[in-house]
Design a protein around this nucleic acid. Structure first.
Lengths: 259, 259
DNA sequence: ACTGCTTCTTTATGCCGTAAAGTATCGACC
DNA sequence: GGTCGATACTTTACGGCATAAAGAAGCAGT
């Protein structure tokens, strides 16, 4: 299972995403399930077990076999598309601009960051060929609605939207993966790091001399929140610091071009 | 197969990564393969088929069964770690600073971008618990060596390194996924996009009214390089534009804090 | 009561990573 | 030179995956 997205039959996928199916009178047994129920169950399973969830597991959670799902959904690819868009429905669709665009973008980014924390499997869904669901659109619309009023030209805006998006995804991915690794192996960050670096230093004793700049970079690290595990602290620091730099850059673009 | 990294036995993995194994006299048949040969073959297979390559496929390319590989490598996880670090050996380990840090960072980012284009499966390897191989270190060291001389404090530097890293990864991921999707389905970007948007507009005719800011954002798009496929053009535009904004932010940090 | 459609289960196919056991090949020692 | 034990590699097998194909059971319209 590598990367999913937009790989099903276009018409079927989009009809499902936009819930454009017409409820007709039908013969046969009453449906015991629904697309929504299946998508919800699948999200719950994926939240726990990551993108490597199985159709069997989703079926089991609903008291059915895996094959029963295929009555409602063409395949796992399409199900993932539906999960993706449905999860996005949790996110706000607009942000107040009273405190300026910078505060609003920061809130957007933080919301996304927390969202990815709740649903890490979303980071596994390809962005290249977007799912094109209504909620995905709404989320990007929300960011666009913050930035368009700054008056920057289209090309520049797209660069900014892309950069913010990539950055948040990347930052979130690191935490998500750290958590997943910890959960899968039952090995906390500290233990993992300790075991690895001990062996590493044993095999390569003068690591600090070989990579002096890295060594400098890692100096004077202080935990932001001592409650958080090791690697997550790094991630939070990187997220805040990186976002600041990025938004400074946007500010620069604003002052250099006429508002 | 979701995300691999640093999940094998620490000692064994790190010994393999740093090639710390001692070549002893051994009885038994001469080895017909080697770790290097296996890693090279695996990279070749992964370049073609993505992270969903199989041990069987790697073995076949070497004229062996899948199980033969397990003589040299503990498992697929460890093999991926080795592939990751070996691929990174392609990248430069230092950059000239004659034209200033900005030019150097741009070259670093562009090199990474192209590297991810050659080996898209690398983007699938988790960054959270790093592989800790020598070449991965060297690549980050190269970026650190560009930025440390700017004199910025450690915390700020880490934020910048993280942001640049996340950004390049995210941007590259989008192209990589677009290419992968195109290769897998045999459907070019244009066809895909055309089929999807046609259906979408049919089902949701006033899309532009529902998401007006998005519509504005997508205006006045002009291809940077008409030779490139649709989505890759977007990606190149986003990469250049985003990197510019990001580096403007770094510049701001530099002028505000004393050099 | 019959027909035709629908829901859901059963069974089967062909992938995957890898454990276990077997075979062939070599160096070291008697 | 014959034997022993370690090594390289293959065969077979297991449990997992998505899903194709076929069958059982339920219900509406005639």
């Amino acid at each position: 299972m590598v990367v999913y997205a937009g790989q099903g039959d276009p018409r079927r996928s989009i009809e499902l995403l936009w819930r454009a199916s017409v409820a007709e009178k039908r013969s046969g047994p009453k449906p015991g399930l629904s697309v929504d129920a299946i998508v919800d169950a699948a999200i719950a399973v994926a939240d726990e077990h990551g993108m490597a969830f199985s159709m069997r597991a989703v079926g089991e959670r609903l008291g059915r076999t895996a094959m029963a799902l295929y009555t409602y959904v063409p395949g796992k690819n399409e199900l993932v598309d539906l999960m993706y868009d449905r999860a996005m429905a949790e996110l706000p669709t607009s942000y107040e601009l009273d405190d300026g665009w910078r505060a609003a973008v920061t809130r957007w980014a933080t919301d996304m960051w927390e969202f990815y924390g709740r649903h890490p499997w979303v980071l596994q869904v390809s962005q290249a060929r977007p799912v094109l669901g209504p909620h995905e659109f709404a989320v990007i619309e929300a960011l666009a609605a913050i930035l368009v009023p700054t008056g920057l030209p289209g090309r520049e805006l797209r660069g900014i939207v892309g950069a913010v998006n990539y950055f948040v995804r990347g930052a979130a991915q690191t935490v998500a993966e750290a958590r997943a690794a910890g959960g899968a192996t039952g090995e906390a960050d500290e233990e993992w790091w300790y075991a690895r670096s001990a062996v590493l230093l044993e095999i390569e004793p003068d690591l600090a001399k070989k990579f002096p700049m890295l060594h400098l970079l890692e100096n004077d690290r202080e935990p932001i929140d001592p409650e958080l595990p090791y690697l997550e602290n790094d991630a939070v620091e990187n997220f805040r610091g990186g976002l600041k730099v990025l938004l400074d850059g946007v500010e620069g673009a604003l002052t250099s071009s006429p508002p």
